[in-house]
Computed example of a mutant assay.
Amino acid sequence: MKKLSTVFILILLLKISTVMAQGNKARILVLIHSDNGGTYKLAKEIASGIESSKNAAAVIKQVKESSNPELKNIPVASVDELPSYDGIAFGSPVYFGNISTGMSEFLSKTVNLWTNHALEGMPATVFMSAGSGAGKELALNAFRNTLAVHGMVLVSNGIRGTENIDKTIPQGNTVLGVTSTASLKDVERPTKDERELAKIQGRNFAKTALALKGTFSKKQTAAVAQEKSQDINEVLEEKNIILPQVPQPAGNYKPFVRSGNLVFINQVALKDGKILNPGKLGVDVNEQEVKEAAKATMLNVIAVLKEAVGGDLNKVKQCVQLTGIFNTKDDYTKHADLMNAASNLTVEIFGEKGKHARATLGASSIPVNSSVEIQAVFEVE
């Protein structure tokens, strides 16, 4: 019995030691955008170097979904998760001496992190893949400039490992970070030496991340967490808001038009196939009935918007403009009060992203005898 107790204690101590060891590891994100897989190949070598020290764990994620079969199973990172790591290695293709569009778009969404100092003091390193190799130093510097604005600690590769590379073929090494040249024929890319440089960079970065672990304040990320938008589907469920079926066009037009990142929508107070509270305010309907119609109209707008973003309302970045047109008599002046029903619903669903510019006006009549018509403009991903 005594022997069994001793064995149990040893097993328990071993498990506790394992958990403590894992907790002491630096957790590093390898964040990439990759077009044809070249950056991803370097990322795997970077990750291998990070984990070779046994004191760090690497997680590879990409900034957007890819149709490349080699990349389709790599998870997509969110901006809000960045402060949870002990270091980030950023990887991207070179686009004309600059960061790739995909990576640039992702970094453009980190404004809240910047204003809340969420990445200050966190170590960062960069690596890139290039077609011809031209402009790689410019691109690396552009990358690092963005990270420097966040107050991140920039870890360069220096000349580590360069004494062992094959000088007879072009190599993608730089003092700022490893790169790979993709256009060289009859040479596997990344080359053996470029892969080795990437491992060295990862290993060196892991040491820095481990040394700085716990030195930058995680309390500063609390404001970011509070600003994180709640899932719109959860909001709709919690508030028991049911979106109607998308109204079908009654003529030669579309329910919505998307131009770039803007979606344009126009709807009337259709509910269950009929116009809700039809007619002119003060003649056929009262103010309360028009407010109900405005709310129903806004629900139609949001139903159309959901279709415009492929069913995911979380892709809505901002309600830009709402215009309410009301069927009123010439002397009516309280249009803004009527429109509040639609505006309040929009903010109720989208929070801060639902706050918008607004216009309201009266009309002598509205198509299909609706008491209200709403025009909406939304910015989406």
Rank of each mutant, 00 (worst) to 15 (best):
A269E: 06
V283L: 07
K280C: 03
N116K: 08
V368F: 10
S78P: 09
L4H: 13
M339T: 03
T39L: 05
V7I: 15
V178Y: 01
S229Q: 13
A198M: 00
R144H: 12
T191S: 12
S17T: 14
N233A: 09
G133P: 05
S84C: 12
I275H: 09
G161E: 02
Q245C: 03
P247H: 07
M103W: 06
V149M: 14
E227I: 08
G102D: 01
L313S: 10
F143G: 08
L31F: 08
D337Y: 00
E227Y: 12
N36D: 11
L281Q: 02
I9G: 12
N145I: 15
K280W: 08
G121S: 14
K41P: 09
V290P: 03
N36K: 11
F90K: 00
P69Q: 13
A134E: 14
K219E: 13
Q201S: 01
L361V: 04
M339D: 09
S78T: 11
M152H: 09
I11Q: 15
E292Q: 09
S100H: 02
G251T: 11
G158K: 00
E45D: 10
A139E: 03
V304R: 01
D86T: 07
C319L: 10
N240Q: 12
S34K: 00
P278E: 04
T360G: 05
V224L: 11
T162Q: 02
V235H: 03
S104G: 10
G91I: 01
I265C: 07
F106K: 01
K3T: 10
L107S: 02
G161L: 04
E234S: 15
G97A: 02
I32A: 01
V175N: 02
V111N: 14
E227K: 14
F378Y: 06
S364R: 08
K61Q: 03
T346I: 08
A182C: 11
K15W: 15
K355S: 10
P278M: 01
T215W: 03
I275R: 05
I88W: 06
K274R: 14
A308I: 11
D272E: 12
A342N: 03
